[in-house]
Design a protein around this nucleic acid. Structure first.
Lengths: 137, 137
DNA sequence: CCGCATCCGATTGGATACTG
DNA sequence: CAGTATCCAATCGGATGCGG
């Protein structure tokens, strides 16, 4: 544990946070669309999004299957989330031509790439929920 | 009760998401405050929040130091973010009694625990930014 | 079965101005 | 320096109802 975390309170223009922003693209002074962190946040932001992603992680699901697994989500929001995912290339939609119209939403490879992020969210969230070993007077 | 997924693509996934939701607490059918993922999302959600966290990751900073590092954030929003972080126990604030009033916000151990999450956001976001190797089976 | 259209209340975040 | 207070435009998300 570091008590003297910061002895150099001056300029930090050259000294970089090597672990947080490895390359130049990540060093932004505002929430810019080109920042990787913003891109990832955009992909998972919005209510129900992470739950929809979790359901689709197992495999393709239809619109109503998603609705039955997430009973409290409205059709409007689910539709918005699905379009958001597809427009970003994280999911796609396959339709059967016949009748009744069957659809299946599935994650693309890019969508599947979100898995480690969901896991990180779960793990860090769990850590925050623990009664805590905090206190650093 | 549960209809089997007939069009099961069959590759790589089990019926139960052991990696995404290891314990029962994580299996929610709606965005509930007790879900670890929601807790983590709550900690990093809101515009500028991740940038504020990144700045505080190096060490304590005062209110205006944060403003100068993030020139485009308004005082109102920065104040809101800082209160959000402190109320969740992710940061705290130390004041010097004299004049002019000096303050310093610093992350607590719980706040520092967010680092792997920020890194995951960066890495996954970078992956999403790559020109892509899409195409699928 | 698969959605989109619309209305509407709640929340967000930016700009500005003001206090200890 | 370190914030708070207020106003306000934009967005979000829930409910409902209709169309393909």
């Amino acid at each position: 544990m570091h008590s003297e975390v910061d002895a150099h309170a001056g300029h930090q223009t050259e000294t970089w946070d090597s672990s947080l922003v490895p390359d130049s693209r990540g060093r932004t002074d505002r929430p810019s669309p080109g920042c990787p962190v913003e891109v990832a946040l955009d992909a998972i932001s919005g209510r129900w999004t992470t739950l929809v992603l979790r359901e689709l992680m197992h495999g393709p699901l239809s619109f109503s299957e998603l609705r039955s697994r997430l009973p409290s989500v409205s059709a409007k929001v689910l539709s918005e989330r699905l379009h958001g995912l597809t427009s970003r290339g994280l999911a796609d939609c396959v339709r059967t031509a016949g009748f009744p119209p069957r659809t299946a939403y599935r994650l693309t490879d890019r969508g599947l790439a979100l898995r480690p992020l969901l896991i990180a969210l779960y793990e860090v969230g769990s850590e925050l929920l623990t009664p805590a070993a905090p206190s650093r007077p």
